[in-house]
């Protein structure tokens, strides 16, 4: 039944789904950009800043747009009324919500790291930011896999 619902989804879900997918793509794009710049910086202050600001100005807005789209779909779909929600929806939902919290923590750590960098101190906190960004990226790949493949 879930497979049928996914296949014959109502046309009114298309716009919220588009918003959800676009937001998720921006989120992942920001994570790829931020993680790349942080990983390849080799203590270069400009690239370290680029990495942090990519997470802040691309990933975070992307996460907000993705969650708005998710809530919009949630307000329309019949799945929320089912006694047993499909597993792929649980996987995607948990990763999206927990990932948002982790992203905020990452931005706080990265923000302190950039402030320290501007004060001429070591960039250790930005290495922590990179590590968490890579974990987040891996988690969102799993979320995309689950939401797209819809494992039962």
């Amino acid at each position: 039944m879930i497979g049928m619902l996914a296949l014959i989804r109502d046309d009114s879900w298309n716009l919220p789904l588009f918003v959800h997918v676009l937001g998720a793509m921006i989120l992942v794009g920001g994570l790829v950009t931020g993680a790349s710049a942080l990983a390849l910086a080799k203590d270069d202050a400009k690239l370290l800043r680029l990495g942090f600001w990519s997470l802040m100005l691309v990933s975070f807005p992307g996460w907000i747009v993705m969650r708005i789209g998710a809530e919009w779909i949630n307000s329309k779909e019949p799945w929320k009324d089912l006694p047993d929600k499909p597993r792929w929806l649980d996987i995607g939902g948990v990763i999206a919500d927990a990932g948002g919290l982790v992203l905020v923590v990452t931005l706080i750590i990265g923000g302190i790291g950039v402030r320290r960098l501007n004060a001429g101190k070591a960039s250790g906190l930005l290495r922590v930011t990179l590590a968490i960004a890579l974990v987040l990226l891996a988690a969102y790949v799993v979320a995309v896999w689950a939401m797209a493949g819809k494992p039962t």
């Binding site: 920001g30 680029l50 790949v141």
Partner: peptide
């Protein structure tokens, strides 16, 4: 998960990879 579901997952993941790269270039 059927073979087609795996293919669909890889298809969507590829689309994410494409857009992620394009966003990276917008930042640059």
């Amino acid at each position: 998960m059927s073979f087609d579901q795996w293919m669909l997952a890889f298809h969507v993941l590829s689309a994410f990879s494409l857009v992620a790269g394009m966003i990276l270039f917008w930042v640059l």
